[in-house]
């Protein structure tokens, strides 16, 4: 096949276009890996909102204390404990262990919720 300037040019344009396409889709598309998400649970009015949250292993959950007094996020089964979260403060947990875990506020026995990790 004869090689000439115009076929080089075509190849170069094609290569550039493909690179641009891959670049614009980002590393996730190139690597085909789902991004870890960060989800939020509000601690408000002495309740956890939402009461049931489902996440993927590797995702993070941030609990934000919107009450004027401290709370905790404590799960024996799930193996996580925020210890005291002061008013206005947050606590972030990366969910590695899969399962459905009940958690409570150890200060307020009526407060419980569920974190499901898939």
């Amino acid at each position: 096949m004869p090689v000439n300037a115009s076929s080089y040019r075509t190849a170069a344009v094609f290569a550039a276009g493909l690179t641009l396409l891959c670049w614009s889709m980002g590393p996730a598309a190139a690597a085909d890996a789902p991004k870890a998400a960060t989800l939020t649970v509000a601690i408000d009015g002495t309740t956890f909102q939402p009461a049931m949250l489902t996440v993927k292993a590797g995702d993070s959950v941030t609990w934000v204390n919107k009450d004027p007094f401290p709370h905790t996020v404590t799960s024996a089964a799930g193996g996580f404990d925020s210890r005291e979260i002061a008013p206005g403060k947050s606590w972030k947990y990366t969910a590695a262990k899969k399962g459905e875990f009940t958690y409570v506020c150890i200060f307020h026995p009526t407060m419980s919720a569920t974190l499901k990790v898939e």
Binding site: G45, T46, H108
Partner: peptide, 17 residues
Amino acid sequence: LVKVRPAFVAHLEHAKM
């Protein structure tokens, strides 16, 4: 008042326990 009301409910339940 609406926001803190549930705290008083939680206290009441805890006291009853």
